[in-house]
Amino acid sequence: RPRTRITDDQLKILRAYFDINNSPSEEQIQEMAEKSGLSQKVIKHWFRNTLFKERQ
């Protein structure tokens, strides 16, 4: 599977949600997927990776 490139606009959407809640529900993930055009799997990975980076 090729690597997914996240655009600046998509990143703004993900960051806005992350700043509010770094552990989103399935409904929130689905909402982000619809708004951003990214798959739910990509969003879950982004949140997991970003949370890991923030904790270091």
Results as ranks from 00 to 15, higher is better:
D9F: 14
A33S: 11
Q30E: 06
I6N: 02
T4N: 15
Q30T: 11
L38I: 05
L51N: 07
D19H: 03
Q28W: 02
F52L: 12
T7F: 03
Q28Y: 04
E31Y: 06
W46N: 01
R1C: 11
P2C: 00
Y17T: 10
F18L: 14
F47D: 01
A16W: 04
T4V: 08
L11N: 11
P24K: 00
Q40Y: 06
L51M: 12
L11A: 05
I29H: 03
R5L: 15
L38A: 10
H45A: 11
Q56H: 03
N21H: 08
D19Y: 12
P24G: 00
F52P: 14
E34V: 11
Y17F: 13
P2H: 15
Q28S: 08
L14K: 00
Q28R: 13
I20R: 12
K12C: 08
R48M: 08
K35G: 04
E31S: 09
S36E: 04
K35N: 04
L14P: 00
T50W: 08
F18Q: 12
R1H: 05
Q10W: 00
F47N: 02
R55L: 09
L38R: 01
S36P: 00
K41H: 13
R1I: 08
A33F: 11
E26K: 13
G37L: 12
R1M: 01
L38F: 00
S23C: 12
Q40D: 04
E34Q: 12
V42C: 12
R48I: 06
A16P: 11
H45N: 10
K44H: 10
E31W: 04
F18W: 07
H45E: 14
R48N: 15
R15Q: 13
N49E: 14
E54I: 02
S39E: 15
F52W: 06
A16D: 11
M32G: 01
L14D: 00
R3Q: 15
R5W: 05
D9T: 15
I43Y: 00
E27L: 05
T50C: 05
R1N: 15
F47P: 00
D19T: 08
D9L: 10
G37C: 07
Q10I: 02
D9N: 13
L51K: 10
Y17I: 06
Q28C: 04
N22V: 14
R55W: 05
K35L: 04
T7S: 07
F18Y: 13
W46S: 02
D19C: 09
D8V: 11
I43S: 00
K12N: 12
M32F: 01
T50H: 08
D8C: 13
E54P: 06
D9K: 09
R55D: 06
K41C: 13
T7L: 04
Q30H: 09
T4C: 00
I13Q: 13
K41D: 15
S25P: 04
N22Q: 02
R15L: 09
G37D: 09
T7G: 05
K44V: 05
I43F: 01
Y17Q: 09
E27H: 01
F52G: 13
K35W: 01
E31P: 03
H45G: 11
E27W: 13
Q40V: 08
A33Y: 01
R5Y: 14
A16T: 07
T50L: 10
L11C: 02
R5E: 15
R15V: 06
E31V: 11
E34F: 02
E34N: 07
A33G: 14
